[in-house]
Design a protein around this nucleic acid. Structure first.
Length: 572
RNA sequence: GGCCCCGUCGUCUAGCCCGGUCUAGGACACUACCCUUUCACGGUAGGGACAUGGGUUCGAAUCCCAUCGGGGUCACCA
């Protein structure tokens, strides 16, 4: 087992961690673990305008939440331990703090004549690009600045005097990328143009920073999404020019929405915009919408017009209009009550597969991160793009939820509620441990997410006087005739309910669901009706709807007072 | 448009490298039935795919070519 494997995940801190990025990070992590190597986190913040420290921190927290721990990188204290660090002294891990290093190599290239300053401004280049497009030709930088100053000395001199960018002098030769997933990918000589390696603001471009960092940090395996495939020849050419090693590359397939579009943060804005427009079409006023959602009216109007895709506006609208925005970022999934183990498991299956069978001969699909870390290999990464099927994720999440022991479920539910549903958290936290377990039993098989968990127990949270009796349920379960068995004769749910009041008012063990149910059963038998009829009448009275968790659990959770009050009210 | 990648059920995929064991397997979703005091859970069953056309071969999902289709990328973003 080699200890020389180093992988890295290198997000740019311009927002939360994207679900696709989570998969990339997970695979890099798993590969390093499997190989006995190290996983590095590096923050690519060379876009000064769009990067932020809050985003970097958010991404780190998202990774930590998913259980993707980095061995090296920015430090983050979480859950009593510290992730990251710089044991080899190859940091810092924020690119913006490595500018001197980049400049050293850039100067080397310039002095070697392998890179040169260029002085065109963006407008000039834009015009040339447009002209090329109009002429149906592929635009390539024409090396005007290179030819204008033939000597290194001349270039150095002018660099000191004028704003400029640095371009790499692309060698005229074929570049072959040996990709571990895709095989040999060849790029003909002349395909590459003289791309920019240092921007006018003095910061390196992505291409340059990546190459320098991967070399200086000793990265051996670069695993990233296929959208970077066409960047790879540039990186290889740069490595060659700088005398660097070429890491092993593996480009993984992309993940899309079910409709084939890119999974983008904009999807959230789109969904929110549509919901708002629908509401307005139905008569809502934009101004009142703005004030109700606590949004600035002009900001909202700009958003509705499509002038911006503000996530803040989108979230505010989503919350206010009660529409679910599509989950795109890890934080969205977390907020909607997904379990990290369900997410990592599901996402592992997008473009990878263990290729193993379960004991009963089915394909192995359910596994944890430890399993991944023991079995992940590049050989089994697929080549085809996939679509993100939330229905399957939901199913996985439901399975993971159901598999949690009651106590563990309660614990994790409480933790989630503390972050995302204060009122329900107070309610659940205020219950006895016994009742919390009952709640877990009621909720686990019925919820696909922690957010869903509120639904089956909604009836517990309405006041006894506020239970909304569903007309259809009342007709069916309280008013319709119920045949006695043995017959002849009929009764109604309403009559049964009336009779049951004495039972509930009497001596019962209200802490014991089975005893409660037994009492109901005995009562039903005494009245010559099936338990089912009795149960439905009770459900209607207790919940208003004829749908509830197991009868004994529901009665126990509600307690004597509430049961009696609700029955009396249904009878009134 | 140039360049690059890809193409097995609706979706994720196994199988493909090393052709026969594939009347193509699993999972999610869907449908039906069973279980059942409701809703769920669970169980059983069912429909559902090798993009198309040519080769090669006794034999092709598996190898080759073409076509068609999908995607990525062409920034002083990463």
């Amino acid at each position: 087992m080699s200890t020389s494997v180093f992988t890295r995940f290198a997000p740019s801190p311009t927002g939360h961690l994207h679900i696709g990025g989570a998969r990339t990070a997970l695979f890099c992590w798993a590969f390093a673990k499997r190989q006995g190597g190290k996983f590095i986190l590096r923050i690519e913040d060379t876009d000064a305008a769009r990067s932020s420290d809050e985003s970097a921190r958010g991404i780190m927290e998202d990774l930590a939440w998913l259980g993707i721990d980095w061995d090296e990188g920015p430090e983050l204290a979480t859950g009593g331990r510290t992730l990251g660090g710089d044991p080899r002294g190859v940091g810092p891990y924020f690119q913006a703090r490595r500018v001197d290093l980049y400049n050293k190599y850039i100067m080397q290239l310039v002095k070697d004549g392998k890179a040169y300053p260029a002085f065109e401004n963006e407008q000039e280049l834009d015009a040339k690009r447009k002209a090329a497009t109009a002429a149906k030709q592929t635009y390539r930088y024409d090396r005007a600045s290179y030819h204008a100053i033939p000597t290194v000395e001349g270039r150095l001199a002018r660099m000191g005097a004028e704003p400029h960018v640095i371009r790499f002098f692309a060698p005229h030769e074929e570049v072959v990328v040996h990709d571990q997933v895709l095989g040999e990918v060849k790029y003909a000589a002349g395909e590459m143009d003289d791309f920019v390696i240092r921007k006018q603001d003095g910061l390196p471009t992505y291409h340059f920073a990546v190459v320098v960092d991967d070399e200086t940090m000793g990265v051996t395996h670069v695993m990233r999404a296929q959208e970077h495939l066409n960047n790879t020849p540039r990186h290889v050419a740069l490595q060659k020019a700088l005398g660097f090693r070429v890491p092993t590359y593996a480009h993984m397939p992309l993940i899309f929405n079910m409709d084939g579009s890119k999974m983008s943060k904009r999807d959230k804005a789109k969904a929110a915009r549509k919901a708002a427009k629908d509401a307005i079409a139905k008569g809502a006023k934009a101004d009142t919408l703005a004030s109700e959602a606590k949004l600035d009216a002009t900001l909202l109007n700009a958003f509705l017009a499509g002038d911006n895709d503000s996530l803040d506006v989108a979230h505010a609208l989503g919350t206010h209009l009660k529409v679910a925005l599509p989950e795109i970022e890890v934080a969205d999934f977390r907020e909607n009550g997904y379990l990290p183990e369900a997410i990592t498991n599901f996402v592992s299956l997008l473009g990878w597969n263990p290729g193993m069978k379960t004991p009963d001969g089915k394909d192995l699909e359910k596994f944890d991160a430890t399993f991944l870390a023991q079995h992940f290999g590049i050989e089994r990464i697929g080549k085809t793009n996939s679509k993100f099927d939330r229905a399957k994720l939901l199913s996985f999440n439901g399975d993971y939820l159901a598999a949690l022991p009651d106590a563990a479920f309660v614990q994790r539910w409480l933790a989630w509620l503390a972050d995302f549903d204060g009122p329900l958290h107070r309610f659940v936290a205020g219950l006895s441990p016994e009742k919390q377990v009952l709640l877990a039993r009621a909720v686990k098989p019925r919820a696909k997410t922690l957010r869903d968990a509120a639904k089956p127990i909604g009836f517990l949270r309405v006041g006894d006087g506020e239970v909304a009796l569903d007309a259809a349920a009342v007709a069916k379960n309280l008013d319709a005739a119920i045949a006695l068995e043995p017959g002849p004769g009929t009764t109604t749910g309403r009559e049964l309910l009336r009779g049951s009041q004495a039972v509930f008012a009497g001596e019962l063990d209200w802490a014991n669901p089975a005893a409660l149910e037994g009492a109901v059963q005995a009562f039903a038998a005494s009245k010559q009706v099936k338990l089912g009829a009795m149960a439905q009448a009770l459900r209607t009275a207790l919940t208003g709807s004829g749908v509830s968790p197991a009868l004994g659990d529901s009665l126990c959770l509600l307690g004597r007072e509430s049961v009696l009050t609700r029955i009396a009210r249904a009878l009134a």
